Simulated assay, not measured.
Amino acid sequence: MYRLKSTTDLSFLSDVCIEQLCVSAGALTIGGDNRVSIKIFASFAISTLGRSYTRFNGSVEDAMALLPLIGDCIREAKATVDGGMQVDFKSGAVLMVFDDSDQFESFTIEYGDLLIVV
Results as ranks from 00 to 15, higher is better:
Leu66Asn: 00
Met1Val: 07
Leu69His: 02
Ile38Pro: 00
Asn57Glu: 07
Gly83Asn: 07
Leu10Ser: 02
Leu21Pro: 00
Leu67Ile: 00
Ser91His: 13
Leu114Asp: 15
Glu61Met: 06
Asp88Thr: 06
Ile109Trp: 04
Ser52Asp: 15
Val97His: 05
Val23Asn: 04
Ser11Lys: 11
Asp99Val: 14
Val36Cys: 04
Met64Cys: 02
Tyr2Asp: 15
Ile109Lys: 09
Phe107Gly: 10
Asp88Trp: 06
Ala27Met: 10
Ile109Leu: 12
Pro68His: 08
Ser6Phe: 07
Gly26Cys: 07
Ile18Pro: 00
Thr8Phe: 03
Cys73Pro: 00
Ser52Gly: 12
Val94Gln: 11
Ser47Pro: 00
Val81Ala: 12
Asp113Thr: 14
Leu66Lys: 02
Phe44His: 05
Cys73His: 02
Leu66Ala: 03
Asp62Met: 01
Lys5Tyr: 11
Ser106Pro: 07
Phe89Glu: 04
Ser106Asp: 10
Ala65His: 06
Asp99Lys: 09
Val118Tyr: 02
Val16Thr: 14
Val87Asn: 03
Asp100Thr: 14
Ala42Tyr: 05
Leu49Gly: 13
Phe107Arg: 12
Val81Glu: 06
Asp9Ser: 09
Ala45Asn: 03
Arg3Met: 10
Ser11Gln: 09
Asp113Leu: 10
Asp15His: 10
Thr108Cys: 08
Ala63Asp: 01
Val60Thr: 05
Phe56Gln: 02
Gly58Gln: 03
Ser37Glu: 10
Ser101Asn: 12
Ala25Met: 06
Lys5Ser: 15
Ser6Glu: 12
Asp99Ile: 07
Ser14Gln: 13
Ser59Ile: 03
Ser24Ala: 09
Asp100Val: 10
Asp113Ala: 09
Ser101Met: 13
Val87Tyr: 05
Gly84Asp: 07
Thr108Trp: 11
Ser14Val: 06
Met85Gln: 00
Ile30Cys: 04
Thr80Ala: 07
Arg55Ala: 07
Gly31Tyr: 06
Leu114Pro: 14
Ser14Met: 06
Leu69Met: 06
Leu28Val: 02
Gly84Ala: 10
Arg3Phe: 05
Ser11Asp: 11
Tyr2Gln: 11
Thr54Glu: 14
Arg51Ser: 15
Gly50Val: 01
Ile74Asn: 00
Gln86His: 08
Ile109Gly: 08
Glu110Ile: 07
Tyr111Cys: 14
Ala65Tyr: 03
Gln86Val: 13
Asp113Lys: 15
Gly84Thr: 14
Tyr2Thr: 15
Ser47His: 06
Ser6Gly: 14
Arg55Gly: 01
Leu66Tyr: 01
Val118Arg: 08
Pro68Phe: 12
Val60Glu: 09
Leu114Tyr: 15
Asp99Met: 09
Lys39Tyr: 04
Val23Lys: 13
Pro68Val: 03
Val81Gly: 04
Gln86Phe: 08
Val118Gln: 08
Phe89Tyr: 14
Glu105Tyr: 02
Cys17Met: 05
Leu21Ser: 04
Val87Pro: 00
Ser52Thr: 03
Phe89Asn: 05
Gln103Ser: 12
Leu67Gly: 00
Gly83Gln: 05
Ala45Asp: 07
Thr54Tyr: 07
Cys22Met: 06
Gln103Asn: 14
Ser52His: 01
Ser106Glu: 11
Leu13Val: 12
Leu28Tyr: 02
Lys78Met: 12
